[in-house]
Amino acid sequence: MMKNIFLAFALLVPSLAFAAGSTVPLDKANYDLSDKASLQNGAKLFMNYCFGCHSAQYQRYNRVAEDLGIPIKLMEENLIFTGVKPGELMQNAIQEKDAAKWFGAPAPDLTLVARVRGADWVYTYLRSFYVDETRPFGVNNKVFPSVGMPHVLQELQGVPNAVYETRMIDGEDQQIYVGIQSDGSGEMSDDEYDHAVLDLVNFLVYSAEPIQLERKRLGYWVLGFLFIFFIISYLLKKEYWRDVH
């Protein structure tokens, strides 16, 4: 019993610290859910770089394929790595006990991460890893200090280093963090990497609410109906009360 309480407390403290947020300003993620090419590339990046540890267990492969305009055959050949049928949920093969052993805690499901944390947070987080030899995986993160995961996109970005500038503050020279700079060894340029991360964020935003575009489209029709109904109701009210007054 005491062991369980201690374990819960040990997991809760980092969570509370994380919930307090980061002092690093968040960059705007200008995603576009109507951009099918972006969503498709985001799905490819997610399945190739994130799905090894993180699942999207509230999504189904065939739903994603239909929404993103990906032929089922192509989905089966390139994006389903666990040998399941397209109608199955997007669950990875890693066992929670193994993930907890390797990373300190099971990797969280990412279906709703963009809705919980916000697209700007996810976008900035994926672009804020930097070399830190004191960490188990050799990297840290400015948005999520003491992060417990490796920088899985490093082969695309290259080795990222935190950049600081010396500025005079209150009469003293202080090192101020100004951003992340890659060493250029990645497969992508800085702009290409930012665009790839934005595609990944776009997919995660879609994953968190697949019906978002349809919801907004129906919302305009509902507002239009209510507006017309209001006019008819107002005219009817005037006609009904005309003889009374």
Rank of each mutant, 00 (worst) to 15 (best):
V163R: 07
A208W: 00
L126C: 10
T111L: 01
Y61W: 14
P145H: 00
I231M: 15
A8T: 12
F9P: 00
Q154R: 11
D183F: 06
G83C: 06
K238E: 15
K216P: 02
E209V: 01
S22V: 10
L223R: 11
D98M: 04
F230P: 02
L74S: 11
I80A: 08
E133S: 14
L11C: 10
K3Y: 13
W102Q: 09
D190K: 03
Q95L: 10
A114D: 08
E88F: 12
V205W: 06
F81Y: 13
S189C: 02
Q59V: 06
S34T: 07
T111G: 03
K85W: 10
Y49I: 07
Q175C: 01
A162W: 00
I176H: 15
T23V: 11
T23W: 15
V139T: 13
S55L: 05
P210I: 00
V24T: 15
N62T: 05
F81R: 04
W102V: 04
S38T: 03
L74C: 04
S185W: 08
E76D: 09
M168N: 13
L156Q: 02
D173P: 03
F137W: 15
W221H: 10
A208G: 09
L74M: 11
M90N: 01
A8Q: 12
L7H: 13
W221N: 09
D183C: 03
D132I: 03
D170H: 05
M47A: 09
V139L: 04
M188I: 02
L89H: 14
G104A: 07
G148N: 13
N161H: 09
F51H: 11
I180F: 01
Y220L: 07
E88L: 07
F137Y: 15
V116A: 11
P136D: 08
M149T: 02
A119T: 04
L33F: 15
R217A: 14
F227E: 15
D109N: 10
F137I: 04
S128F: 02
V163L: 11
F203G: 03
G42R: 00
C53N: 07
F203S: 00
Y123F: 10
I176P: 03
F51S: 02
I180Q: 05
Y61R: 05
L198H: 04
I169E: 09
D243T: 06
G184H: 06
V147Y: 12
V197I: 14
W241P: 00
F51P: 00
G158K: 00
I72F: 07
V116W: 13
M2T: 05
V222F: 15
P136V: 05
K73Y: 15
G87V: 05
T166G: 04
S207W: 05
I169N: 02
